[in-house]
Design a protein around this nucleic acid. Structure first.
Lengths: 154, 154
DNA sequence: TTAGGTGCAAAGGGTTTGCAAGCCT
DNA sequence: AGGCTTGCAAACCCTTTGCACCTAA
């Protein structure tokens, strides 16, 4: 249950009710299932809807895949989660959990390592400016093979 | 028809017959359709199968989508093209056309700008090493809004 | 009671595949 | 002739949606 919203405030189902008061979005009701999904997501960064569904099932929670997709989409809209498209699937990651950080994605197993680097942060802005880009989203990804996959090719 | 394979040799259907002598892959036959797809791909970097299909249709070429998918997958295997997953679609880009370069992807319209930066190249290696990653594939992506999309949000 | 939330199954969108027919060698 | 290629449609996979039912407020 250690999810943070961008301004570093810890989020719970209660603070959530404040957070998602976004335009054209009606007020949320409290929901046990959403609580459960939030708790599971909090302990597993970079998960797919299917993975969440599986781990919840293992714990004996029957929550439909559809609900998980809907809930994760909601979390993204609230700024709690961030969707990433890896291969053909959508992975959901935590946002702002540890300040600005980027991802190192293993092209073999799909695992993701996080890193922070001030210099690259500066270059990022520089390169974006040179190309007329606005850095709305903080997202920089590096691809390679992680230590486990680096030996065997594939 | 200006596609280059990694070792900088210009590729044509003829040189292709040499290039794709890969293991467990039988010898390719010459095919007009593949020639046409190659020519179209050469003039349009970062295209989806659907876009290629459309532009070919406009030129009066009737080539099925299935064939385009199969052919682009072949090009990737041969090192002629590189697949990238943007949103839910697969985009095919040229490989090694202009040496090492990275991508700046517009999160609104999907357009891709290419850039080269020596410093980031160095950092890339540094960061990968720090995290135990092997940089098999050269791929680094930055996300933001391009100059056209930067003003209107989304 | 009323507006969300949920399950289920069907629909969607992109990509792959099986099969019969076509083409290169 | 033999084998790679192609078109077509069906199959697939992941994700979204419609609808009827359930639940929080």
């Amino acid at each position: 249950m250690d999810i943070y919203i961008p301004d570093q405030e810890k989020i719970t189902m209660r603070t959530m009710n404040v957070a998602k008061m976004s335009p054209n979005r009606s007020r949320l009701k409290h929901s046990k299932k959403r609580d459960i999904i939030l708790a599971a997501f909090a302990t597993q960064n970079h998960v797919t809807a299917q993975k969440l569904h599986n781990s919840l099932a293992e714990e004996g929670h029957r929550i439909s895949l559809g609900t998980i997709y809907r809930t994760m989409r909601l979390f993204c809209k609230m700024g709690l989660a961030q969707a990433r498209h890896c291969e053909a699937k959508t992975q959901y990651g935590h946002t702002a959990a540890k300040g600005r950080h980027d991802h190192l994605v293993c092209t073999a197993c799909g695992n993701i390592a996080e890193f922070e680097n001030q210099e690259i942060e500066r270059l990022r802005k520089e390169i974006a400016a040179e190309n007329g880009f606005t850095l709305s989203v903080h997202k920089l990804e590096l691809y390679g093979l992680c230590s486990l996959c680096g030996h065997s090719d594939n």
